[in-house]
């Protein structure tokens, strides 16, 4: 199977009876092309092929997978979008 560009994904434990983060991390590490970058009590940061990650998470009851995004420092000041010629 050919993998796409590695992506970062967030996993979150959403059910109280879901396996703990340690166990979920172990199961993900066993997947080909998936790397667990960080482990928190209710969340994991993983990197790898998006489809592989999502497929792996489907087999772990009570965990959800989300995309990784970012937001800028807020600023109310107006900005120049186009330099005057």
């Amino acid at each position: 199977m050919e993998h796409g560009e590695p992506m970062r994904k967030i996993l979150r434990r959403i059910d109280d009876d879901a396996p703990p983060a340690r166990e979920a991390a172990k199961r993900l590490q066993a997947e080909d092309g998936v790397t667990v970058l960080d482990e928190q009590p209710s969340s994991l940061l993983v990197e790898g092929d998006a489809e592989a990650i999502e497929a792996a998470v489907e087999s772990i009851e009570g965990w959800s997978v989300y995309g990784s995004t970012s937001i800028k420092v807020p600023d109310a000041r107006p900005r120049v979008l186009r330099k005057k010629k």
């Binding site: 970062r8 967030i10 979150r12 960080d38 928190q40 009590p41 209710s42 969340s43 940061l45 989300y66 990784s68 995004t69 970012s70 937001i71 800028k72 420092v73």
Partner: peptide, 19 residues
């Protein structure tokens, strides 16, 4: 949650900060 580089904050970091 905002890094030293001045770049944006990642949702993973915001989520962990809330937790």
């Amino acid at each position: 949650v905002f890094p030293h580089t001045g770049k944006g904050a990642q949702n993973y970091d915001i989520m962990n900060a809330i937790d």
